[in-house]
Design a protein around this nucleic acid. Structure first.
Lengths: 291, 291
DNA sequence: TGCTTTCCGAAATGATTGTAACAGAAATTG
DNA sequence: CAATTTCTGTTACAATCATTTCGGAAAGCA
């Protein structure tokens, strides 16, 4: 009994590829190259696009084990449905049987939805401006987060420090603020993370920073932190999750994308800096070489 | 001049929904409910599934601004192509025109690919066991990360502390270890984050913890940290990114999913704990109420 | 080279599709 | 309640589609 029935259409085609004739393979590779949209239309269109005759397409379908082109096509539509339904976790469809109930899959779905919502909403120009601010060596960078987002501020700072100097993490202990604020001059940049429930400490620091003439970038959720009122730029992220808390994944993605953008803008300076850092780390014997 | 031409098919349908007749709306909602696969087949199949006549479908298509069903369908196929090509960034197709070259989109694509790879590879049973360990109130939890992953360990600890007691972050300053190790008894759990380049300090701590009889969970990248050799459980994540560094997004997703799993396992105890924490925060006036 | 086998597309055919025209039903209006 | 408009399905028909048939081209073999 052939196992093919359980396989996806794509795999089946790939597997059959060696046993096909020249024209048939021409069709198959064309479909695979534009999978699966190429085979969603009529057989005529597909044949013309693949530069073969329609009977060839029919023969291919039958060779793959389908009754004809419509049969093949409906199998393909089923595949499309599966691909579209959940971008991730396509593998668990057969393993679990039940509609994805495992927390891993539910969470993954939520995360992807958040990313989708977040990224379709971000204004590219705005993002670029923020990246420009952070890449400007004449500005000092400060970052702070709330109870939950403190880790993200930490992450931003520790990686940004590799790219450029003058990056400071402001802890949420407010006694560390005054000295930092003392150094803050007009043009400096404060990146403030604040998601619900919005914290007074963040708002206060933002207000103080604005008074010092700093450019404030607020990264918040879609209900928008009150601190955003004072901010020059606001980046909003979607954070819904099937749990008691929110998911800050899209915030991390924003941070990493900002880092990548800054790094690419300052590549010359960064590169030299990074290699220097590497040798320092090597010499301090903290790292083990990856074989 | 109607802006409809630039809109996606789905949006267009939703927008037109109020202006449709009963039978037309029946078709439209059916399509939207099973979007877009329902309308990828023949008009006859669609009409039967939506329980209307075929001319109704035709009239709907024309009302939406298409010349007929085939025209509508080909527009739909274009949409499918876009959806499949990149799960995110559906919005930039018309804004940019050029093939998505903006760092936001490239990064988003990479992240989704990482999530896909990570989640299709995780063993659910293994994951559940880790969640079980972390949810066990009789075990103490310790966490540590490397230079980059320190923020993730921090995040795990600060949120886990809400759910349960006895959670400790081990900083990467090794002078904080001995007192922690002193408390570590057989059965306790150490969660160690270690991605390339793998750090000696993590490896050392893991070895020490194993000697104390602790259960070690290593969260690493797909090249697998040497520390994993000593671990009871290993969760691997994909971290490739279009930048000079890696993207730790999938690691954060793992962390958050673990948190969600633990929280749902200990919901009774957690809930009481969380409400207590809320009142404490309220009383300390650190937060501003979200209106 | 001749013979066979395999492969491929033009042509023919039946089936299905998508659409226009029409007519009855339903809703709306005066 | 009749008149009118709007909506919807049945019917009919042209267009397209998918498939089978068949002849010739290409490749393999003696």
């Amino acid at each position: 009994m052939p196992m093919d029935l359980a396989l996806g259409v794509e795999d089946k085609m790939r597997a059959a590829l060696p046993d096909l004739t020249r024209a048939e393979r021409q069709v198959a590779t064309h479909i695979l190259r534009h999978y699966p949209v190429a085979a969603l239309g009529s057989i005529t269109a597909l044949a013309r696009a693949a530069e073969v005759s329609t009977p060839t397409v029919v023969r291919l379908c039958q060779k793959l084990g389908y009754r004809g082109y419509p049969d093949y096509q409906s199998a393909l539509r089923g595949e499309v449905e599966a691909m579209l339904e959940s971008p991730l976790v396509k593998h668990d469809r057969w393993a679990g049987g039940a509609p994805d109930t495992h927390i891993l899959n539910r969470f993954a779905d939520a995360v992807v939805a958040n990313l989708q919502a977040t990224f379709s909403q971000i204004d590219h120009a705005d993002f670029d401006q923020v990246a420009g601010l952070l890449a400007d060596p004449s500005r000092r960078i400060f970052a702070m987060g709330g109870r939950i987002t403190h880790a993200h501020a930490d992450y931003l700072v520790s990686l940004m420090k590799v790219v450029r100097p003058e990056v400071t993490l402001l802890s949420d202990m407010s006694n560390t603020w005054p000295p930092a604020l003392l150094d803050m001059t007009p043009g400096d940049v404060l990146v403030a993370f604040d998601i619900r429930r919005y914290e007074n400490s963040v708002l206060q620091l933002v207000e103080l920073a604005v008074e010092q003439g700093a450019e404030v970038v607020v990264i918040t959720d879609r209900w928008v932190s009150p601190a955003a009122a004072h901010a020059r730029h606001t980046l909003t992220a979607h954070i819904e999750a099937p749990s008691a808390w929110d998911s800050t994944v899209s915030i991390l993605v924003l941070v990493e994308t900002l880092l990548a953008a800054v790094q690419s803008r300052t590549w010359d300076a960064t590169q030299e800096r990074m290699t220097r850092l590497e040798t320092l780390y090597d010499r301090s014997r903290f790292f083990r070489r990856h074989r």
